[in-house]
């Protein structure tokens, strides 16, 4: 057994996006399904930050929600530290839940506006029955201190804080059950850049101190580059490439990764002339046949339009692209 903390195999999720039954009958339409996540597999090692990047409709948030159990998987398995999460329930599941937490995108929505900060942070402690009485108050104070706030802030309500401070509170809540693994769903995309840097620094510090493992979801390539040890690139629900951190940026393999990197505005003013990006993301209800990227791909071959590509090893990780397959001699 490897040291993988989280193992995802052939994870797939459909959503029923059909019209109501009566409309379908009258308009003689079939049921419609949207494949948000298609056959995704990856592993996250203990202590690393694995990032998933992708544009809207890539399925990155759906994967995050499946990992923490907010929505079920249509197919495939999620294994957390050797426990298959789909088959676990009751006390065993409760124990597993304590060990993973989630940080959400919008710090204005992720804290109950009618609760005091102290109660918000203590909710996991109470739910898992970790501490009692004055110990809870002390622990909340410690946690607030850890995330750079003051113990006195426990008495306040969320609206008294700025966006960055709220995200710190959300992080304190996530930490309060002493988890090993945290799913971070776009944790800084609602924040301003100067505050984003504070939160990213805090997350890195916490990881170093507590040995946390992160699944980091983002659409921002430069943030991902800064945070992640390994990166998975999603396109229309499929994992097109997985590569070691910085190498994804220096040696992108999949044509979509290359296109994505070309699209990022260049702050360095290097004057590099970007290759213009072609086309837009197709409708996920009716995705292209074969490789979903083929209508926009500069390397498209006849085969790409028919078969979905398989995973191939690359110098930096693996990717799913026919153009990267070694031609048989």
């Amino acid at each position: 057994m490897s040291d993988a903390l989280l193992k995802i195999e052939n994870l797939t999720r459909y959503f029923d996006v059909s019209k109501p039954w009566l409309n379908r009958m009258l308009e003689r339409e079939e049921k419609q399904f949207l494949t948000a996540v298609a056959d995704v597999s990856f592993e996250i090692k203990r202590g690393e930050t694995f990032a998933l990047v992708g544009e809207s409709g890539s399925g990155k948030s759906t994967i995050a929600k499946m990992v923490v159990g907010l929505i079920g998987a249509s197919e495939g398995t999620i294994t957390f530290d050797g426990h298959n999460m789909t088959g676990t329930a009751g006390a065993e599941m409760r124990d597993l839940r304590r060990r993973f937490q989630m940080i959400f995108q919008d710090p204005f929505a992720s804290l109950n506006p009618r609760w005091r900060v102290g109660d918000i942070i203590a909710e996991p402690i109470h739910t898992f029955g970790l501490l009692k009485g004055a110990q809870v108050t002390n622990r909340v104070g410690e946690l607030l201190d850890t995330v750079g706030l003051s113990a006195k802030d426990a008495e306040k309500f969320p609206h008294e804080f700025s966006g960055g401070q709220r995200q710190r509170i959300a992080i304190a809540r996530a930490l309060s059950s002493k988890p090993e693994f945290i799913v971070c769903d776009e944790p800084t995309s609602a924040l301003d850049v100067s505050v984003q840097a504070q939160i990213l620094n805090l997350m890195k510090d916490l990881q170093d101190e507590m040995g946390l493992t992160y699944l980091f979801i983002s659409h921002d390539l430069s943030v991902v580059r800064h945070m992640a040890n390994r990166i998975g690139v999603l396109y229309l629900g499929s994992l097109v490439e997985v590569a070691d951190g910085k190498k994804l940026f220096s040696e992108p393999q999949h044509p979509y990764t290359r296109m994505l990197l070309d699209a990022v505005p260049d702050l360095a003013l290097s004057g590099r002339r970007r290759k213009p990006v072609e086309g837009e993301i197709p409708n996920p209800i009716n995705p292209p046949s074969g490789c979903a990227f083929h209508p926009r791909c500069p390397l498209v071959m006849p085969r790409c339009k028919v078969d979905p590509p398989h995973r191939v090893e690359t110098p930096t990780g693996y990717a799913a692209c026919f153009a990267l397959e070694k031609q048989p001699a």
Partner: peptide
């Protein structure tokens, strides 16, 4: 200066970002 330092880039490596303390 702080704003520019706090933006992660695609080309340079930083162990930590230069963050401006506090908020506007």
């Amino acid at each position: 200066v702080g704003l520019m330092g706090s933006i992660p880039t695609l080309t340079q490596d930083h162990a930590r970002l230069v963050a401006i303390p506090g908020a506007m």
